[in-house]
Design a protein around this nucleic acid. Structure first.
Lengths: 246, 246
DNA sequence: CTTGACCCTCACGCTGCGTCAGGGCTGAGG
DNA sequence: CCTCAGCCCTGACGCAGCGTGAGGGTCAAG
């Protein structure tokens, strides 16, 4: 098969195939005239390349992995996942910062430096863990760190799922009266999840309450797990629901 | 203030300051010897630069924005946010794919091509919208596009929630006999949601049916809303349930 | 005078291709 | 036979945001 055909078949450009060839990632056979000729074996390999590339793994490393026939692949996957999750955190912060900025610019339309300051605030707030030092006592933080060790992937997945569902439900109930049973039921679920996060530890709970009180700086308690759910309306709404619920 | 001091103060490297200088983003004064001298005004500007850079906005654009004194800033923010959210989706898919791959490698530890295939599956499933072109006729697609216009955010949120719930329920019922009432009830809910999606339009419905039949390429009908819910077990299971349900 | 300690300006490196630029081989039509 | 279209090839620069030397000037202390 010639380049164009092959490329179309696999969904990559001819240029990319040239590139992979030069990198030694995928070296097809050649005709006498020097034309590249691809086989089905090449297709398999290319699919693997594409897959790993999709995961954000650099081509050089892919080359190494495929040449060593995937012996270190599990490690690579783990590493890559943490890297991506890291990136995702950054992205979430940025998105949140923009939302804040957009809100602060929306009503009054007082642009200029004010909202840039706003952005900076959000960044600084979430940047390092300085905020946690504001809200948690040293002892509480030690306990949090402990719990982090027990924080298994399965548990993580479960909690993550529960938060996901809760968020969806809250989002759908935004029109509901905060004092209604429905809303209050959501508050109960919310508190339960938070309790699960804090392990029912009162010290940590206090920290969270301070955090609730300080509306301006509302980051998520289980922020890391809840990355996808940055809709600020949800947070505002729950804030109101909590208030009237006591 | 000299470069090093200034850089440390603002949290950027000297090299970066040189860079900004060359780009015309931040031009400090110079001493007779040609040394850069920064003022507090420069600090303000730098902070703005850093903030916007954090949002992923390219330096060139930042220059434009600051020079025009942020008049188009709201638009830029909106655009940037959608871009970032797009990236986030991709990241999510990649992370999900890795998780799947890790799981499939975990128990049996049969690495090699199997899990790469797995990764590919996840990608293809969620990747572009090529699948819709395979299953829908041009006319049907036109209708879908129409419906997209009526696709308000509220409606979206509701449907999204219903799918979320359904997914959770199906996931919890994976052990159930596909012929059992429970399973069949789930199938009914499923079909109802699909019907809602297709608007009861028979043409679109046909497309979906073809889609069901072609198990290998099972993407989600409301894919965009459901990105987080890629558990293929759910899909497989529902496939079986549908089959025996008729 | 020498040695640091800072400062400066090139200029290449990295990632993954996109995009010309300059040319070769081949079959169809004039 | 010539030419033009169409597909293939190999460089090589461009982009984003700096990191990282290389090579060299300035100024004060020893």
């Amino acid at each position: 098969m010639n380049v164009q055909e092959f490329g179309k078949l696999a969904g990559v450009t001819v240029r990319a195939l040239h590139h992979y060839d030069r990198l030694g990632l995928l070296r097809p056979q050649r005709t006498d005239a020097g034309y590249r000729v691809y086989s089905t074996r090449d297709l398999e390999r290319l699919e693997q390349i594409v897959a790993l590339k999709f995961l954000g793994i650099p081509l050089k490393q892919i080359k190494g992995m495929l040449d060593l026939n995937g012996l270190e692949l599990p490690d690579a996957l783990r590493m890559q996942r943490t890297v991506l999750e890291q990136k995702r955190k950054l992205l979430d912060r940025a998105i949140l910062a923009i939302r804040e900025a957009e809100q602060s610019i929306g009503p009054g339309r007082r642009a200029d430096s004010a909202l840039l300051t706003k952005i900076i605030e959000v960044i600084e707030m979430q940047n390092d863990s300085s905020w946690s030092e504001k809200y948690y006592s040293p002892e509480a933080r030690a306990k949090i760190d402990e719990r982090r060790k027990e924080w298994t992937p399965e548990l993580q997945a479960q909690v993550s799922k529960q938060w996901t569902e809760l968020f969806a439900d809250v989002e759908a109930a935004l029109g509901e009266d905060p004092e209604s049973e429905k809303a209050q039921a959501l508050a109960v679920r919310w508190k339960a999840l938070v309790a699960g996060f804090t392990g029912g530890d009162p010290e940590i709970g206090e920290g969270l309450n301070k955090l609730y009180a300080d509306k301006a700086n509302w980051p998520a308690p289980a922020k890391e797990q809840m990355a996808p759910f940055g809709n600020p309306k949800v947070w505002e709404y729950m804030s109101r629901v909590m208030k009237c619920g006591g």
